[in-house]
């Protein structure tokens, strides 16, 4: 309710603060909400309010190159071996690394868990690097495209083949095609 109120009320005279909107919802829903809200607010016809938008979705930093008036900032941190030092300084440019594990360590999560998390992160990063290379070949909308693919994968994954009637199968296919539009 609160975000929708902001969108309805905000004008170019407003200062809008959005702190992690979409957090708490499932990753993909959250991202798409955050993305749509950012696009809406940046649109001068629709809103154009001065806005500070903090987010965990690094994908949103892509908006800088897509919409005039959007600027990326990040709060600087320094990595020192396994540790992370908070510099508290805001600097131009986005970040796209994950620091959650460092924070877990700071918060006193047992070492074993942190090590295991680091391993998982490494494998994930390898996968992400592959994706990043792909990205360079496909211009523009790629991230949203990947996101759609993920959603489709999710839809297919949920289907129980044993229970699926031919008509249901057709319906699923229609849904998938719609998503790809």
């Amino acid at each position: 309710m609160e975000v929708s109120t902001i969108l309805k009320e905000a004008t170019s005279n407003s200062l809008v603060i959005l702190d992690e909107i979409g957090r708490g919802t499932s990753t993909y829903d959250g991202l798409s909400i955050a993305w749509a809200v950012a696009e809406y607010i940046a649109d001068r016809e629709k809103c154009g309010a001065k806005t500070l938008f903090a987010t965990h979705y690094h994908e949103l930093t892509e908006l800088e190159s897509k919409i005039e008036g959007v600027k990326n900032y990040s709060i600087a941190v320094k990595e020192k071996g396994e540790d992370i030092i908070f510099l508290r300084k805001i600097i131009r440019g986005g970040t796209d690394e994950s620091y959650g594990i460092h924070v877990a360590k700071l918060a006193g999560v047992p070492n074993k868990v942190v090590t295991r998390a680091n391993e998982i992160l490494k494998t994930l990063e390898r996968k992400i690097t592959v994706k990043k290379e792909d990205k360079k070949n496909v211009a523009g909308q790629l991230d949203m495209y990947n996101y759609k693919l993920a959603e489709i994968a999710h839809t297919i994954d949920k289907v129980d083949i044993n229970e699926l009637t031919p008509i249901d199968a057709l319906n699923v296919l229609v849904k998938i095609k719609e998503k790809l539009k």
């Binding site: 702190d19 940046a42 938008f53 965990h56 990040s74 941190v77 970040t95």
Partner: peptide
């Protein structure tokens, strides 16, 4: 921030970095 070139700042950074405070 202004009404033209710097309307929307996307702020990223790890947890506890100070985004909300900023």
């Amino acid at each position: 921030l202004n009404l033209e070139s710097d309307r929307l700042s996307i702020i990223t950074g790890p947890n506890m970095a100070g985004k909300s405070t900023y």
